[in-house]
Amino acid sequence: MKFDTALTVLAALSHPTRLATYRLLIQCEPEGLSTGQLVEASDLSQSTFSTQLAVMAKAGLVVSEKRGRQQIQRANIDTLRELMLFLAKDCCQGRAELCEPLLAELTCC
């Protein structure tokens, strides 16, 4: 992941509604949730939520697919993986032993 892309993704996640939405979508993988379900969970109006969703889509955090009459939103796990790798590589500076405690926490849950 390039530096500018990481900044875009982090900026998109820096809003409480967008972060909560993305976390919810991750929990609902691989099925995803309809846009209506996400609007209900956010307690925002449809138009306000659509603006938030557009920011997430532009950052590559969500992908949308049509299922029947519904628009289903799914977390783009590839973007999350790329961001995590970008952050971990910078953090560890090539020293894998520095990230071992983090990896241990991730595998225990």
Results as ranks from 00 to 15, higher is better:
Glu82Asp: 10
Ala59Val: 04
Arg74Ser: 03
Ala59Asn: 14
Ser64Val: 05
Ala11Leu: 07
Thr5Trp: 06
Ile72Cys: 08
Leu25Gln: 09
Leu103Asn: 04
Lys89Ala: 10
Ala6Lys: 02
Arg67Lys: 10
Arg81Leu: 10
Thr107His: 15
Met84Gly: 06
Leu19Tyr: 02
Glu97Met: 03
Lys2Asp: 12
Arg69Ser: 15
Gln73Pro: 02
Val62Tyr: 05
Pro30His: 05
Leu19Ile: 10
Lys58Gly: 04
Ala6His: 04
Tyr22Met: 09
Glu31Leu: 00
Thr35Tyr: 00
Leu53Arg: 15
Asp78Arg: 15
Ser45Glu: 03
Glu82Pro: 02
Gly32Ser: 05
Gln73Thr: 01
Pro101Arg: 09
Leu44Arg: 10
Ile72Ser: 03
Met56Ser: 00
Cys91Leu: 15
Glu29Ala: 15
Val63Ala: 12
Ala20Tyr: 11
Arg95Gln: 15
Leu102Ala: 10
Glu82Tyr: 01
Gly32Phe: 08
Lys66Gly: 03
Val9Trp: 01
Leu25Met: 05
Ser42Cys: 01
Gln52His: 14
Arg69Thr: 14
Thr8Val: 10
Arg18Tyr: 06
Ala11Val: 02
Glu31Ser: 09
Asp90Phe: 11
Leu61Cys: 03
Leu44Thr: 04
Leu44Asp: 08
Ser34Cys: 00
Cys108Arg: 13
Cys99Gln: 02
Asp4Ala: 13
Thr8His: 08
Ile26Glu: 11
Thr21Tyr: 06
Gly94Lys: 03
Ser42Asp: 05
Thr5Pro: 01
Leu106His: 02
Asp90His: 13
Leu24Arg: 09
Leu33Asp: 01
Thr35Gly: 02
Phe3Trp: 11
Thr5His: 09
Gln93His: 12
Leu24Phe: 08
Leu98Trp: 14
Ala54Thr: 14
Ala6Arg: 01
Pro101Phe: 06
Arg18Ile: 06
Cys109Tyr: 11
Ile72Glu: 00
Ala12Asp: 01
Pro30Val: 01
Val62Asn: 01
Gln93Phe: 03
Val39Lys: 01
Arg81Glu: 09
Thr51Arg: 15
Leu10Ala: 13
Asn76Tyr: 02
Cys28Gly: 12
Gln71Leu: 04
Thr5Cys: 00
Ser50Lys: 06
Thr79Leu: 12
Glu97Cys: 02
Gln46Pro: 14
Thr8Asn: 09
Thr51Asn: 11
Ser42Tyr: 02
Leu87Met: 15
Ala6Ser: 07
Leu38Glu: 05
Leu83Asn: 03
Cys108Ser: 14
Ala88Leu: 13
Phe3Ser: 00
Ser42Val: 00
Arg23Met: 13
Gln93Trp: 00
Gln52Val: 03
Leu24Ile: 07
Thr107Val: 10
Glu100Ile: 06
Val63Pro: 10
Glu105Arg: 12
Cys91Trp: 04
Val63Gln: 14
Leu106Gly: 11
Cys28Pro: 06
Ala54Leu: 12
Arg67Asp: 07
Arg69Glu: 09
Val62Gln: 00
Asp43Trp: 04
Asp4Val: 11
Gln52Ala: 08
Cys109Gln: 12
Leu83Tyr: 04
Glu105Ser: 15
His15Ser: 00
Thr48Asn: 06
Gln37Asn: 03
Pro101Glu: 07
Leu38Trp: 01
Val39Trp: 03
